[in-house]
Nucleic acid binder design. Sequence first.
DNA 1: GATCTATGTAGAT
DNA 2: TCTACCTAGATCG
Length: 269
Amino acid sequence: MPEGHTLHRLARLHQRRYAGAPVRVSSPQGRFAAEAAELDGRPMLGAEAYGKHLFHNYGPAGTVHVHLGLYGVFTEVALPVVPPAGQVRMRLAGRTHWTDLRGPTRCELLSEAEADAIKARLGPDPLRRDAQPQRAWERISRSRTVLAALLMDQSVLAGVGNVYRAEVLFRQGIAPLLPGRALDSVVWKAVWDDLVTLMRAGVRTGRIDTVADEHLPEVTGRAPRQDRHGGEVYVYRRTGQPCLVCGTPIAQTELAGRNLYWCPTCQPA
DNA sequence: GATCTATGTAGAT
DNA sequence: TCTACCTAGATCG
């Protein structure tokens, strides 16, 4: 279930489990077999996330680039390994644990230059210390595109997905269809800072929770809604349900093929 | 058991 | 703007 926080959690986990020692690499499904054979038994130097992209660095042997897409998932279990079940694109086995990757949209072996090129085309990632938010602002403040689309554009901001987009716009009281260049720079600063706060919390907990304590359903008495993703949210997938702040039914529309959710009262046009 | 839907992206049109 | 990718859980019947 991949927005940026998920990938940063995985990078942190893989760094701890597999970096600094030889790793057994295989591709039971076969689609990564040649690359796996190339890497098998080599030490992983490090794991890092950039936006929704995950990189396993094997030094001169190359860098594995993983993008989970909609369906991709890593599972991890303590040794010993068991025979693969289903379609396992990549299997890693380390000193104590092994992990299977299924259903990624990308799993490929790249040169360092190719990995750098992917990072270079991404916007600043609120979860990275080296992020430069002004790079995003330069794009947003000149754009006629609506904010809801800009926030999902990975070349503008890296790591923000449909949930964080909807929730940060709600929390900052911004109409999702506001053009980027109509956004006030002070409000932009608040959006960025809020993304940093929310996404860091997501890395800590592995969930997306965005609702302030005073708005929690058990406090306000408004209908509780535990979403499938496991967190407590204001608007994401709450179409027609009462806003946790004002009670107005949450609105939904489709934008660029993705569902967009907002409160018409708290986020007036 | 069949069908629908999804926290995503690239490439074709 | 559309489709393909290709997985699993929820929902339908």
